[in-house]
Structures are given as C-alpha cells and as structure tokens.
C-alpha cells in the first residue's frame, strides 16, 4: 500500500466508524461494497463527502463512473491522483 492508499483506507475507517478495523485490515483490491468490506449506499454518500473535504474531489452523484471509482481503495487512489486538488486539505 502506498501513502495515498493508506491515507484513503484510514479515511474510510474514520469516516464510517469502522472501529473494529485497522488500515492493514483493508486490502487495496478488496471490494468496498456488498460482499467485500460490507459498505452500503449510505456509506457511499458519506465517503464521497469525506473525499470531497479531504482531497477536493467533486463527485457527481449521477456519474456512471462513480461506481467504478468506488470499487476498491486502489481505484479510489487512482481517482484521487487523477482528479484531486493537490493542495486540498
């Protein structure tokens, strides 16, 4: 896991109150939703908000690509690298 991926995994744990997990418990290619980590649609909204706040991402809720970007920690990291604002806090 690179730094950005660790960062995103930490953000997922913190934002979604996954107190029973540590960063290393989430594999970069583990599906986040459904049968994988077990996140649901409310988590998706919450996570989109957190990504927006931390990385300056703008995620359109009707975007057909959103589902693909949110598949795993790795796909989220790629998405942040390509679309995030570098200095966003």
């Amino acid at each position: 896991m690179n730094d950005l991926e660790r960062n995103i995994a930490g953000l997922i744990i913190e934002t979604l109150a996954l107190e029973h997990l540590k960063v290393d418990d989430i594999a970069v290619d583990q599906p986040l939703f459904g049968q994988g980590l077990g996140l649901d649609s409310v988590d998706a909204l919450e996570l989109a908000l957190a990504l927006q706040n931390r990385y300056g991402l703008k995620i359109a809720s009707d975007s057909r690509d959103a589902r693909r970007h949110f598949e795993t920690v790795r796909s989220l990291a790629h998405y942040v690298e390509a679309n995030g604002a570098p200095c966003a806090n």
């Binding site: 409310v42 909204l45 919450e46 908000l49 927006q52 706040n53």
Partner: peptide, 10 residues
C-alpha cells in the same frame, strides 16, 4: 456552512 453528514441526518 459545511455539508451535512448523510448518516447523521438519516
């Protein structure tokens, strides 16, 4: 003026 958390709201 921060966006509301969907979880908190729901």
């Amino acid at each position: 003026e921060a966006p509301l958390s969907p979880t908190q709201f729901g």
